[in-house]
Design a binder for these strands. Structure first.
Lengths: 155, 155
DNA sequence: CAAGATTGAACGCTCAATCTTG
DNA sequence: CAAGATTGAGCGTTCAATCTTG
């Protein structure tokens, strides 16, 4: 893989995923959907924790959360042990619906993998899974550990 | 891989590749570099052929080529057999330098793959190679075949 | 009509800087 | 000081529409 191929691949993957993501919620900025699903996965979280996990910069997460609050999809409270921190979370009522949306259509890549034998397709998906972990792992390295509330370590 | 993970991965890959690509040529738009390297790989090509291969929309390629011409990195001539078509190509003098730039640093992903055993790293790179081909294959399906001059078929 | 150029609007994102507040 | 909100600039890209030309 040369650099140009990697750019091509990254752009195609991101484009495909984005279109699938926003297909369920027309008019909602991608970043907001990413944030709400991140909250469902990881439980109530501070802004910078979300930023680290999602790969978005702090300001992007801030505005996304602001948007989600406006939609009544997310609420915030302040961390009792550290008043500066804002803990964002998905209220119970909303969580159910959001989870349904995310659980539909896991295998976006299926149409692309069609020409390949089943077995090979699975290998490729597994490789992508590994890559996701590796990227997240790297972004977590420089951060202080154990900051998340739910902190289920994977590695 | 869920949709959100795929978006994350695509964005990280694209971001990494873009930074590597522009590191060699500060101030040059990414798309221009992609186009010139596409021309080196595939020989003189029409605008829409470049668009199909790179994944960029036609207008983007048009402006990128315009920029490259301004830099004297690319020239165009019109297709003798079809006056409407514009054939873009990299003049000999420039080609050598451009090729050197692209050939540096093949393995951008190496730092990310470090935590893994060598063997696994190779498997993952191979999976990405496959994906690049699959994406390109899909984008080529709907197009008329045999339009490229150099047209070295892969499948 | 098809290939391409050009342009303007809009999106998604980053970066940088500033401000507020515990 | 650190966490977060807010805002403005800028980049890279898509989309849509229009125009030119063979």
């Amino acid at each position: 893989v040369r650099r140009v191929d990697l750019l091509y691949l990254g752009q195609r993957i991101a484009e495909l995923a984005r279109s699938e993501i926003t297909a369920d919620a027309r008019g909602v900025p991608t970043a907001e959907l990413v944030v709400i699903w991140d909250l469902l996965d990881n439980g109530p979280s501070g802004i910078s924790d979300i930023a680290r996990r999602t790969g978005y910069v702090q300001s992007r997460v801030s505005t996304a959360v602001a948007g989600l609050i406006e939609r009544k999809w997310v609420e915030t409270r302040s961390d009792p042990s550290d008043g500066r921190r804002v803990i964002a979370f998905v209220p119970d009522g909303v969580a159910a619906e959001a989870r349904v949306l995310e659980s539909r259509q896991h295998e976006i890549l299926q149409p692309i993998l069609l020409p390949l034998p089943h077995e090979r397709g699975k290998e490729i998906l597994a490789a992508l899974d590994d890559l996701v972990l590796l990227f997240r792992q790297r972004s977590g390295e420089t951060e202080r550990p154990g900051s998340g509330e739910h902190a289920k370590e994977l590695a």
